[in-house]
Every structure is written in structure tokens, then in C-alpha cells.
Design a protein around this nucleic acid. Structure first.
Length: 324
DNA sequence: CATCAGGGCCCTG
DNA sequence: CAGGGCCCTGAT
């Protein structure tokens, strides 16, 4: 049991994402499972970060509009932060919350589309968002594999409890991730006791690969999609399904949709074809034909839209497809 | 009660 | 390239 660490120091910066940028649709993805390292409220978002080997708390506030976006970021820390550190945080924040990729063509092209038109109107400026470091995202993908939502949540929270810390800032108490080396020094047995099951081996190996600096996220960000794919598949426990998510959500490639996992297949069948189950090939073909160049982003808009709806309206068939 | 597939992946044959 | 095994949980 670790004591809560107080992050009393505060520094403030203001950032301008390139428009259009939809704060709420980007800082909150209703299809994702909740995790104690972040909280979202309308116009506000809190998340922890491990940067330069220290725990930070970030609070984001929406102080602009979709077409003239501005975001205030309060950075909370234990000690006063140097100017260099704050400066290093700016490009990282811009990357993690995808301030800089330009998707304006998507809106131009599809604003009158039969399926996407109305969705775009609601969610203009929605983008894929990593929010976490690559290592952290991989941990999330590993606990996601072959598990129900509840189980994924439990696994991640157990890991936070064992390897992370608790920090308090702006009256929120949130969990932090850990550095890969910390988990690499642990054992498979310790991880198994946290109920991650056979994933223990995956987590150990991935942590080792990061601790040994075999993977450099910053180099990867500059690579092509195929190169990234190849590199990611080298990671033990990361296969085609995880890579499909990674390329979009973490590296922001919006074009190609290549895989549709079973539960997404069921949900998309209802949403697009109004049928119980349409073959994956049909779904892929639909996106390829209609949204060439923006397949994956189009999928994202349709997907998140129904999960936003689910927040205030009960959709019976959808409840059945979500394995809680 | 037992059995089985699953929001995958690895390894073997 | 097909198929079994793996942690668990929920469905049947």
C-alpha cells in the first residue's frame, strides 16, 4: 500500500491545437473502459503522467471552440519544474492528444454523406487520441485481450495498485503508471497473483523490451505505417488485433481498416446494415468503397457516436454485445 | 453441476 | 496455415 503523493506545485501553459479540434470527443472516448489514471468531465480532463522519472498530474480545460481551439493545461508536480521540463512537455502533450494531425479533408469530403453527414455535424474535430505513452497503451491492450470489460478493469487496477502510485492534485486522487523497468524487475509469479493470467508473460517481456530500450517510441513516431507494424509485431503478446488498434489510436493513421474483431463486427452489422451479422469482408468493403483514404476514421466516428448515445439512452441490442 | 467460447496470441506440426 | 492451450468469466 503506497501513500498518496501530493502534487502541490503548479505550472500553467496554454496550447492551440490545429482546428477543428473537439475537446470532449477527444479527451473522452465512451467506448473505452474506465481507468483510475484519468477522469473526464465536460470541458475538463485530468490524467497522470510519468515523465522524466517523476509523477505528474495534468489538468486540461477547454477554453476555446471547435474551430478556434484553445486548451489550458495545469501541470502539477511534487517539486518545482524546470523550464526545460515544461518545454519538453509541450510537444509530448501535443502528440499524445493529437493536436497536430490535419483531418480537415475528411469533413470536406464526407459532410454530406448519407451515413456520416449527421455524425460529422455532431462530432466535428474528433480524432484518435493516445493519451498515454506507448508502453502504457500496450499494457492496456494486453489486459484487453480475451477478457470482459470488468476483468480488464480489474487487471489494470491490480497493476496500478502493485506497480503504480497514487497522486493527489486539483482535489483528485488518481493512479499513475510505472516505469517499464519496475515491472521488468518483478516476476511472472507476482503478476499472476494480480489475476492477469497468461498475460503475465506478455507483460514481463514487453516491460523488459522497453526497459532494455529495444523500443523507442519517439523513433517509431517518425516511421511509416508498415515499419511500425513490423516493429510492434516483434513485441511478445502483441499480434494483429492489437496492432490494428495501435496504428490508429496511437500513431494516428486514419486510412486503412484491415481487421474487425468479433464484437465490433456485430455492432457494425447493426449500425450500417441493420442486420444481426454481416461478414467482415462486407464491412471492410463498405468502408473501402465509401470512405477511401479515411476508412478507419469513418469507422471511429460511427463507432464512438453510438457509444455517446449509450450514455443517455438505453440501446437494448448494444447492451447485449458489450461484454461487461 | 459441467462444458465451452471468447474484445488474442503463441507455438507446434 | 490449422488447431490446441492458456487465465478467467459468463452463457447455456
Amino acid at each position: 500500500m503506497t501513500k498518496t503523493m501530493e502534487l502541490q506545485n503548479k505550472a500553467t501553459i496554454e496550447l492551440k491545437p490545429i482546428p477543428p479540434y473537439n475537446f470532449d470527443a477527444n479527451f473522452h472516448k465512451p467506448s473505452h473502459f474506465p481507468s483510475s489514471d484519468n477522469i473526464w468531465e465536460k470541458g475538463k480532463y485530468w490524467i497522470t503522467m510519468v515523465w522524466d522519472s517523476q509523477e505528474l498530474g495534468l489538468k486540461f480545460e477547454d477554453i476555446g471552440t471547435i474551430d478556434i481551439p484553445r486548451i489550458r493545461v495545469n501541470v502539477y508536480s511534487r517539486k518545482t519544474l524546470s523550464k526545460e521540463l515544461i518545454d519538453s512537455l509541450i510537444p509530448e502533450t501535443r502528440w499524445r492528444f493529437n493536436f497536430d494531425s490535419d483531418i480537415s479533408e475528411f469533413f470536406e469530403k464526407f459532410k454530406d454523406d448519407k451515413v456520416l453527414g449527421s455524425i460529422i455535424k455532431k462530432w466535428k474535430g474528433m480524432k484518435p487520441i493516445a493519451a498515454n505513452s506507448l508502453y502504457e497503451t500496450l499494457v492496456i491492450y494486453v489486459v484487453l485481450q480475451n477478457a470482459t470489460v470488468r476483468r480488464s478493469v480489474q487487471m489494470l487496477e491490480n497493476l496500478f495498485e502493485k506497480f503504480g502510485k497514487k497522486v493527489r492534485f486539483d482535489n483528485k486522487v488518481l493512479s499513475t503508471f510505472w516505469e517499464p523497468s519496475k515491472m521488468a524487475k518483478s516476476t511472472e509469479k507476482v503478476l499472476r497473483d494480480l489475476k492477469v493470467g497468461y498475460r503475465a508473460k506478455f507483460l514481463m517481456k514487453i516491460s523488459e523490451q522497453f526497459a532494455n530500450e529495444e523500443i523507442d517510441e519517439f523513433v517509431l513516431r517518425k516511421m511509416t505505417k508498415d515499419e511500425i507494424k513490423k516493429e510492434m509485431l516483434k513485441l511478445y503478446g502483441i499480434g494483429p488485433a492489437s496492432v490494428e488498434y495501435l496504428l490508429f489510436e496511437d500513431f494516428y493513421f486514419c486510412d486503412k481498416l484491415e481487421k474487425v474483431p468479433p464484437w465490433e463486427q456485430k455492432i457494425m452489422s447493426r449500425l450500417i446494415f441493420k442486420k444481426k451479422l454481416v461478414p467482415v469482408e462486407k464491412i471492410l468493403e463498405f468502408f473501402k468503397k465509401k470512405y477511401s483514404g479515411w476508412n478507419k476514421l469513418a469507422f471511429h466516428y460511427i463507432w464512438e457516436d453510438v457509444f455517446w448515445k449509450r450514455k443517455h439512452e438505453r440501446i437494448e441490442w448494444l447492451e447485449k454485445e458489450i461484454r461487461l
